[in-house]
């Protein structure tokens, strides 16, 4: 027991990876040793989407109590639809399509920050109401959208490099960038400082408003990246493509060991938690257990994690 404590406090991501490994082990066991490698590849490919949105949500949650972005699913859907419509199946239009989708993300993030900053809306309500608007825009814009992604994008999104799915490589690079940004740049340090104590950060010369603005924009930007990749990966955009990412994005942050009270982010944990969530689903599917048990278990795990790690919030 005493030996566990340094592990859990010093390296909180350890547990999410241990859990992911455990789920993988059980999965392989149930498959009688077959398909171990395929399971990993599939997990990497699907977990990558969780990771991309999870990183954005993590930075927002790290900004401190009350900060959360509920507009992620709407942004994923809208940017997926916009990308598909602008590309219109043409390889030549991939770049404009991607840029248009990313512009949507930046615009929504900026709008969120405007509501929070100018109207003093609590972030949860600001992102909720903007997500209502964005969702409607996506429905209206994407109605009857039957456009296949351009072949080149589809090929890219499903391709592999040395057997590793390309989107997983992208998500690893993105995670590494975010990790370096949080620890080694003035912006990243400012995010962590604001999350621990916004007033002290202001008094230490941090531009709190600017830091918050950049963070919400980055979060929406990551969601739009996820939207484009997801549309390319799954052969087109659909109106419910973002649905599961609201709860998942928060869940991977919590399970990954970032502090929900803010100020402490955990980038490797996002990967561990995303792999774990996917492998848990695969494992339970293999066992023939239905979606019900899977959802219930996911929920209980989130609550267990927060209950065990929750003591820290009471320090303040």
């Amino acid at each position: 027991m005493t030996r566990c404590i340094p592990l859990s406090t010093g390296k909180p991501w350890f547990w999410s990876f241990a859990a992911a490994f455990g789920a993988w082990g059980l999965l392989v066991l149930f498959l009688n040793g077959r398909g171990a490698e395929e399971a990993i590849t599939a997990a990497l490919a699907f977990a990558a989407f969780f990771v991309i949105v999870g990183l954005g949500q993590m930075m927002v949650i790290t900004l401190g109590p009350g900060n959360i972005d509920l507009s992620i699913p709407a942004v994923i859907t809208l940017s997926g639809c916009v990308a598909m419509r602008v590309m219109n199946g043409q390889d030549a239009a991939i770049l404009p399509g991607v840029l248009a989708a990313l512009a949507c993300g930046v615009a929504v993030g900026g709008f969120n920050n405007l509501l929070i900053h100018l109207l003093r809306m609590p972030p949860i309500i600001a992102t909720l109401s903007s997500s209502f608007l964005v969702q409607s825009a996506a429905i209206s814009y994407g109605r009857g959208l039957q456009v296949q992604p351009p072949q080149a994008l589809q090929d890219f999104a499903t391709s592999r490099l040395y057997g590793i799915p390309i989107n997983a490589i992208f998500a690893v690079l993105l995670a590494a960038t975010v990790g370096v940004m949080l620890t080694r740049t003035v912006y990243g340090r400012s995010v962590l400082a604001v999350g621990q104590n916004a007033r002290a950060a202001w008094l230490a010369g941090v531009h709190v408003g600017l830091v918050r603005c950049v963070t919400y924009v980055l979060c929406a930007l990551f969601a739009s990246v996820c939207g484009v990749l997801l549309a390319g990966f799954s052969g087109g955009a659909s109106l419910d493509m973002g649905q599961e990412y609201l709860l998942a994005s928060i869940a991977v942050v919590v399970i990954g060991g970032s502090s929900v009270a803010g100020g402490r982010a955990n980038v490797p944990g996002i990967w561990g938690a995303s792999l774990f969530l996917f492998l848990l689903v695969s494992m339970l599917n293999t066992l023939g257990l239905g979606a019900g048990i899977r959802l219930t278990l996911t929920g209980l795990i989130i609550i267990a994690v927060i209950t065990l790690a929750g003591g820290e919030t009471s320090q303040r």
Partner: peptide, 18 residues
């Protein structure tokens, strides 16, 4: 346990749905 209600109820939403 002084937990953030948002996260606990988020977890519970999975449980109820399941």
């Amino acid at each position: 346990r002084r937990l953030p209600s948002i996260v606990v109820t988020l977890g519970m939403s999975f449980v109820w749905l399941g």
